[in-house]
Design a protein around this nucleic acid. Structure first.
Length: 264
DNA sequence: ATGGTCGACAATCGA
């Protein structure tokens, strides 16, 4: 099974790019974040036309929003309303995978604003609270076997998940308090499926800012998008791809798709 | 130290 996660940064604007994504990566399941489309305006006919008839989506006006497009049958599963905000940042589904049901989570963690201080900046407080609440929820129930968690987690945890560890220690997405919170969440029972393939000393990014005139030349990236699997699935990890080609597509997202192939 | 660019949606806000 191949799973892709992509912060698409407006589903309606970039719907044509899904064709390219599917042609290149041939995913069974596509998890999207920042769809920026309310449910009543979701392009309902599009997924089936692309070959993904099974859909879960949760959107709102203007920002946030997540969606899962699948070739395999899925069922939406109840999940918490994180921080009681009703803000469309998570979907939990059960996927009928070849080897049985897979529990799949698609997350869009709050970006957290600019100032890395929970007192001065309510957005940063929300981000930390969101991650802590998610960690607590998985810790309480235990990460079940055959679980996969993907999404834009908006935190780059490792030194080489950013272009300059020293210069980003005070920048929201790589501060020690965020890193600790994210790793505590991961350690409730998940393994980092992408770092399974790439040693920690190698640079690895999934996001490059729009604000660089030449993203490839400056290469000031961060690894904000993640795929985690429950430990029982680690032995079945087959292949990954961080699809950097997508960063050069016309009118593309600042995030690129991340793909995992696994036996499940 | 600063400013740089996007998308949604209609003056800014969020990233």
């Amino acid at each position: 099974m191949r799973i892709v996660t992509w912060n698409i940064n407006s589903l309606r604007l970039r719907l044509p790019l899904l064709d390219r994504l599917i042609a290149a990566l041939d995913p069974d399941v596509i998890c999207l974040q920042e769809t920026k489309v309310p449910d009543d305006l979701f392009p309902d006919a599009a997924p089936a036309a692309l070959g993904y008839p099974h859909v879960a989506r949760r959107g709102m006006k203007g920002y946030n929003g997540v969606a899962i497009l699948s070739r395999l049958p899925l069922r939406l599963v109840d999940a918490p309303d994180w921080c009681s905000r009703g803000d469309c940042r998570h979907l939990q589904v059960h996927i009928d995978a070849p080897g049985g049901v897979v529990e799949l989570h698609d997350f869009y963690v709050p970006a957290g604003g600019d100032i890395p201080d929970r007192v001065e900046n309510p957005k940063f407080a929300h981000k930390l609270d969101f991650v802590a609440e998610a960690a607590g929820w998985f810790a309480a129930s235990g990460v079940r076997p055959r679980s996969v968690l993907v999404g834009d987690l908006n935190i780059a945890p490792l030194e080489h998940d950013v272009w300059s560890h020293k210069q980003l220690l005070d920048v929201v997405s790589h501060t020690p308090v965020e890193v600790a919170a994210l790793l505590a969440w991961q350690h409730t029972g998940f393994a980092d499926a992408i770092r399974h393939f790439v040693p920690a000393h190698e640079k690895l990014y999934t996001w490059w800012s729009y604000r660089n005139r030449d993203w490839r030349a400056s290469d000031r990236g961060r690894r904000l998008d993640h795929i985690w699997v429950s430990r029982d699935l680690v032995a079945g990890l087959r292949r990954y791809e961080i699809f950097k080609d997508a960063r050069d597509w016309p009118q593309t997202s600042d995030h690129v798709p991340v793909m995992l192939e696994l036996d499940a």
